[in-house]
Amino acid sequence: MMGRRTSWTPWAGWLAGPLGWIIQHQGGSNTVFWNCTLGQPSLVVTLGVVGALVALGGGWLSWRAVRDVGSGETVEPHWGSQRFIGMVGVLVVLIVLVAIAGQTMAGLILRGCG
């Protein structure tokens, strides 16, 4: 069953990936800046999980857009570029997930204002 195609769906990975990274990075660094005692492992892991889930949601939407377009010829020629945009969106999310994982691990090693 083909999902409903929209012109913004392939762009979801491009938008949600960096948004998840912003949530994890800025949320953690600003919290520690405001109050050093808040930079505990539970907060770092929670922000990492929330950021990763936001990024994965966008990657999933981009992947669905790529899958829905398929490899066959479509009636509308611009869907080929939408497929490319969706694949790059998935790759953006994968790169952002590596950054989120690395920064979450660093937050577990360096606690508070360490």
Rank of each mutant, 00 (worst) to 15 (best):
M1P: 09
G3L: 10
R4L: 11
R5E: 09
T6D: 06
S7Q: 08
W11K: 09
W14C: 01
A16Y: 07
L19Y: 06
L19H: 05
W21M: 13
I22G: 10
Q24M: 14
Q26K: 14
V32G: 03
F33P: 03
F33L: 15
W34Y: 14
C36W: 09
G39Q: 05
Q40C: 07
V44D: 07
V44M: 14
V45P: 02
L47V: 05
G51D: 00
A52E: 01
A52F: 01
A55E: 03
L56S: 04
L56F: 05
L56D: 00
S62E: 01
S62F: 02
S62W: 00
R64W: 06
D68Q: 06
V69P: 01
V69D: 05
G70C: 07
T74C: 10
E76L: 12
P77N: 02
G80P: 00
Q82M: 10
R83S: 10
F84C: 07
F84D: 09
I85V: 13
I85R: 08
G89C: 02
V90Y: 04
V90T: 03
V90H: 04
V92L: 03
V92A: 07
V93H: 02
V93C: 05
V93E: 02
V93R: 01
L94T: 04
I95W: 11
I95L: 12
I95F: 13
V96E: 02
A101T: 12
G102N: 14
A106W: 15
L108N: 15
L110G: 15
L110H: 15
G112V: 02
C113S: 10
